[in-house]
Write a protein that binds this DNA or RNA. Structure first.
Length: 593
RNA sequence: GACUAAGUAGCUCAGCAGGUAGAGCACAUCCCUUUUAAGGAUGGGGUCCUGGGUUCGAAUCCCAGCUUAGUCACCA
């Protein structure tokens, strides 16, 4: 109930802000609203209900017409006006449809064949703006300047835009006045998508990557599944979860940090392979590579081990690179990365030895602390053996793994869900794939020994009691599932956001998420007109009051009556208001009411 | 969480030995009836992020806060 009430209140506040927007419209917004009204007065619906038949795409016209100029002689196309060059009786418009941009040639006597030239002179030239959405019919031709264009025979208003767009211009591949402010781009992604075509392209690539993976898994008969996002035990990873509350059950639930334990239950259930594109939530820091909600693809395949999984991943990644770029070589953050299999495979301890000269393979916790000290790696008392080794690896090795590298055979303390190594009980059959110094994928030969699993969970509990607040919870139902018997299985998780970053060369996770998490937009607390009226303010003065910087009752109470009286009459003059000047006594009565 | 930088017109940005707020694009009106980021002329548009302080006077200097970005810390 508490949550719902709070929501309703926020919505209410938000709405009262919208009601007040009229008072704060910029000149350009007001002009567009006036145009909107004029359109209606001319009998033109600026937001018509009927569908608009489209039978051509800008990119196809530009591609095919130069080869065969008998095509596209009776087309219908719709999109957004991105620029206009009006030259008296003829004009040129850049129209942006979902596939690109194409120039329109609009001639007065063509769209207004009769005496009445209103559609051209008034509607097109004066009442339409950059950003408006229109549909046109006509035929394709090439202008004197050699540009493939559409000769417009009819024009229909499909949607009037009330806010001016950022104007981005381009000449010979050079972009002028680009819309670049990250805050505005992420908060108003719709604007970003309108004016920055490369942004639209990034998300097309993202979808392509996901589809390629899905096809790859389905080809082999693995099943796509959905598992719970709301979990009473947040398992499958080491991370701090978000907590939420279920009212009917009256229990706290966690948003999932991983879906691993559920997918393995399904392998127990008998599927050959299962996978899920899983939105995970982790209550941790945010930076260029971390968003609180992010997407992981996890896949589990029965009767396989981690060696098989390495080959499986290699093939998948090289296929994605080929499909996107036509080559396995991809430029990522200044490096040329080659996803051509096989990738290098190296045990973690070998890599540490390679970089530091120290062999940590059989060290105990004390020796590891000493090694960390020697190497200048910071430690704290809560760290166990696994975390100490991980600290050394993270500090000394990770950033050097530029070309795709499978780091294998992690210490057992770091991997409580992973099967012991077949040749060394202190290690696990785990690999992580590093590309460009970043972890991209993580995989195991899954632990299917229920007794060992319970002991590992209990070890996590000890770490937790020692102060490690990310140690895993014990999931007894998962142990019970293993007790029924899980086939030998290999599982792999891959960060989709990071994969998309690498495959598109984007530097920030915010550029591969349509709506990255931001702090809520600051909303000015604005008093409603009604509240001002209740205080005695006459409605015609309310906009002026706001212009004078008085937006709340509190501000009004604290205002200097002399200053406000002067300001208001100054504004009256400035805006040539047709109302009598305000009296000082009136202003005082508002303030002291 | 710490440090650094930024926040000025719808957009991109100037302005800062403190003295009436600027440009380009966009917008409006007019001219021209015409092709390439922009033909010409004129004009309107600002809570210089917010709140304090110093000062006769602050967009500019100082302090605090908000938002964003970057680096680090934490974290996969």
């Amino acid at each position: 109930m508490i949550h719902i009430k709070r929501c309703e209140r926020n919505c209410y506040n938000f709405n009262s802000q919208i009601f007040n927007r009229m008072a704060e419209l910029t000149e350009q917004e007001q002009i567009r609203r006036n145009s909107l009204n004029e359109l209606r007065n001319l009998g033109i619906n600026p937001y018509p209900a009927a569908l608009y038949e489209v039978n051509a795409k800008s990119d196809e016209i530009l591609d095919q017409f130069p080869k065969d100029n008998t095509l596209f002689q009776n087309i219908s196309i719709a999109g957004r006006i991105m620029s206009r060059r009006i030259m008296g009786a003829a004009s040129f418009v850049e129209l942006q449809d979902p596939h690109g941009r194409i120039q329109l040639y609009v001639k007065r006597d063509e769209i207004c064949p009769g005496e009445d030239k209103t559609l051209y002179n008034t509607v097109f030239k004066r009442l339409l703006d950059i950003g408006d959405i229109i549909g046109v019919t006509g035929y394709v031709f090439v202008t004197q300047m050699g540009e493939t264009s559409i000769h417009v025979k009819s024009l229909t208003v499909l949607s009037k835009s009330l806010r001016p767009l950022p104007i981005v211009k381009e000449k010979d591949g050079k972009v002028y006045d680009a819309f670049t402010d990250p805050e505005q781009r992420y908060r108003m992604r719709y604007v970003d998508l309108i004016v920055n075509p490369q942004v639209r392209e990034t998300f097309v690539k993202r979808a392509k990557i996901v589809n390629l993976m899905r096809d790859y898994f389905n080809e082999q008969g693995y099943l796509e599944v959905d598992t719970p996002v709301l979990q009473s035990i947040p398992g499958g990873a080491s991370a701090r979860p978000f907590i939420t509350h279920h009212n009917a059950l009256n229990i706290d639930l966690y948003l999932r940090i991983a879906n691993e334990l559920y997918l393995k239950r399904l392998i127990v259930g008998g599927y050959a392979g299962v996978y899920e594109f899983s939105r995970n939530f982790r209550n941790e820091g945010m930076d260029r590579t971390h968003n609180p909600e992010f997407t992981c693809m996890e896949i589990y395949v029965a009767y396989k081990d981690y060696n098989w999984m390495m080959s499986f991943v290699e093939t998948m990644l090289s296929r994605i690179a080929m499909a996107l770029h036509g080559t396995t070589k991809v430029s990522v953050w200044g490096n040329e990365i080659d996803f051509n299999p096989p990738f290098r495979r190296a045990p973690m301890c070998d890599l540490i030895k390679e970089e530091t000269g120290i062999d940590v393979t059989n060290m105990d916790e004390g020796q590891l602390r000493e090694a960390c000290k020697q190497l200048g790696v910071e430690t704290d008392p809560t760290m166990g053996k696994g975390k100490l080794i991980d600290a050394i690896f993270g500090e000394k090795c990770e950033h050097k793994l530029i070309q795709p590298t499978f780091v294998t055979d992690y210490p057992i303390e770091m991997s409580p869900l992973c099967k012991r190594h077949r040749n060394n009980p202190n290690l696990t059959e785990r690999f992580e794939l590093f590309v460009c110094g970043k972890e991209l994928a993580n995989a195991y030969s899954e632990l299917n020994d229920p007794i060992d699993q319970l002991q590992r969970f209990q070890e996590q509990l000890r770490l937790s009691e020692k102060g490690d607040d990310e140690a895993m919870f014990i999931d007894m139902d998962f142990v019970r599932a293993l007790e029924f018997g899980m086939p030998p299985t290999s599982g792999m998780g891959i960060g989709i956001d990071r994969l998309v970053m690498m495959m598109t060369g984007e530097q920030s996770i915010q550029d591969v998420l349509l709506f990255p998490q931001m702090k809520p937009e600051k909303k000015a607390t604005v008093t409603t007109d009604e509240e001002f009226v209740a205080r005695g303010v006459t409605s015609e003065w309310i906009p002026m009051l706001r212009k004078a910087g008085v937006n709340t009752i509190t501000q009004l109470k604290e205002a200097n009556p002399n200053k406000l009286y002067n300001d208001l009459n100054g504004l009256r003059k400035k805006h040539k208001l047709d109302i009598p000047p305000i009296q000082k006594e009136t202003v005082e009565s508002w303030i002291n009411n």
